[in-house]
Design a binder for these strands. Sequence first.
DNA 1: GTAGCTGCAAATTCTTTGCAGTTGT
DNA 2: ACAACTGCAAAGAATTTGCAGCTAC
Lengths: 149, 149
Amino acid sequence: MERNTRQRSAIRDAIAQADRPLLPQEVLDAAQREVPGLGIATVYRNLKLLVEEGALQAVNLPGENTRFELMGHQHHHHFQCRQCQRVFDVHACPGDLSRLAPKGFTVEDHDLTLYGRCSDCVPARPGRAHAASAEQDRSAMRAHKQKHR
Amino acid sequence: MERNTRQRSAIRDAIAQADRPLLPQEVLDAAQREVPGLGIATVYRNLKLLVEEGALQAVNLPGENTRFELMGHQHHHHFQCRQCQRVFDVHACPGDLSRLAPKGFTVEDHDLTLYGRCSDCVPARPGRAHAASAEQDRSAMRAHKQKHR
DNA sequence: GTAGCTGCAAATTCTTTGCAGTTGT
DNA sequence: ACAACTGCAAAGAATTTGCAGCTAC
């Protein structure tokens, strides 16, 4: 039977209150505000558990680590901002794409990722970057991007 | 100045002779037939080098490790078979998708991945899987999938 | 001759797992 | 009580890097 621990609630809340898919490290940062001693292993264990029980959904973008969001919206896609690296939901879909596949191939599903600038990072001025949430997230991403350098 | 080593040629050839994007480990396996002592670090170093010089193209699919293919076809997409896990090029594109983005967002590009069955793994009979190349690749993928278990 | 390259081993990053102690029910 | 859970540290997998020796040019 599954228990209701402070840690699990904090993790679920962190994701529920975010308006976009979060990285495990971002979940940890957010959840630690409520449970300071929280460890990253517990975050990973709970993310896996919550996905299995259908509460969360894993979001995989090309070349990115897995993010997590609330299960809910069925089929949808994602948009990644090339400036702040954040990922947003896109509740639209191009529809049936089976016509694109090679002959003899059967298409069952598809993944689509759009790239560009989010509304906080307008393309006009590259040096802008003021919106609080965007700036906050950029630092998280900077830390994240240090991998393999 | 860049040199022309046996190792680099073997790596480039391995990718040139494949009909689909290869994982670094698959490149190593193929290139070692020509240069037995070849190490994985050399493969990674050359893949990065060849991408930078424009000879190769990195192929990132959601939740998959980076694969590599010859640069050539500009904008194209990919198809992954859910049975044999192999990835194939799709030389078609749904076209402009900016209409799908939220208001205030600017779309500059997109990535599309189709999922289903390739012509070697017909959906009719799940227990089939005979084609030699498919079987060969499946074992490579099995080894690959051992990660994090 | 020497700068670029290679193989090996060690380091890094992300994720998972073993274990001993803690806690929800 | 006791099984589920947690934090920590160690293990694993993919990728990168330091280094001493090799090799193309």
